[in-house]
Amino acid sequence: MIEVNNIHKSFGDNHVLKGISTTFEKGKTNLIIGSSGSGKTVFVKCLLGLFKPEEGTISYDGRIYSELTLAERRNLRQEMGMVFQGSALFDSMTVEGNVMFPLEMFTKQSRSEMLERVNFVLQRVNLPDANNRFPAEISGGMKKRVAIARAIVMKPKYLFCDEPNSGLDPKTAIIIDNLIQEITQEYDITTVINSHDMNSVMEIGEKIIFLKDGHKEWEGSNKEIFKTDNAAVTNFVYSSELFKKVRQMYIEERN
């Protein structure tokens, strides 16, 4: 579980995060949504320890990040997996090299043990025959799967995903969403997803946090988002005609 308590983050005069408090629960897919410039990426980077908040605390299963020693922070980082928006695969390495990289860096496993684990996670993300291909040779959806495989290869406790569906066709986006949700439940991970994708919100948003101008405007589940009267949330989530109709149908069904 990740507990965020009143964090503030500024860049010069630009006050990006203005006192956000929330909890990300274990075994659940937690979504952070909000319009561009609302502070989502900065928030996720604070959760990852890439940005240091000026105020407030972030606690990972009781371990407050700002109170940890450098060595403890390094160990905590190894419990985190991250899927970047652009996948961030290492161009010079094959798919196998990319997925094996964290194991090579941080474990003392033999090559055969590492290879066994790599093949297992590649199988898990449905990429059994891509070991020797380079990132430039595979599709966007496959890159995302490799990024997920690399993120989970060290059996992380916390998984962060920055716009995992961006640039993907709707079908592949759903496959990636489902994969992330399955992995979250299967390995009991605390997953935090930064997303713009309303399909993801409806499908896998077990907990949703809506950010607006650096504030937490609303939080709830994908069921509750249908019922909310919060104008900012409804304007954002139901901006398309399709989702307006979906919401209308939901309300009519309930009545």
Partner: peptide, 11 residues
């Protein structure tokens, strides 16, 4: 391409 961020996140 965020590869440096990926290294940092891994520790």
């Amino acid at each position: 391409t965020e590869q440096i961020d990926a290294l940092e996140v891994m520790g």
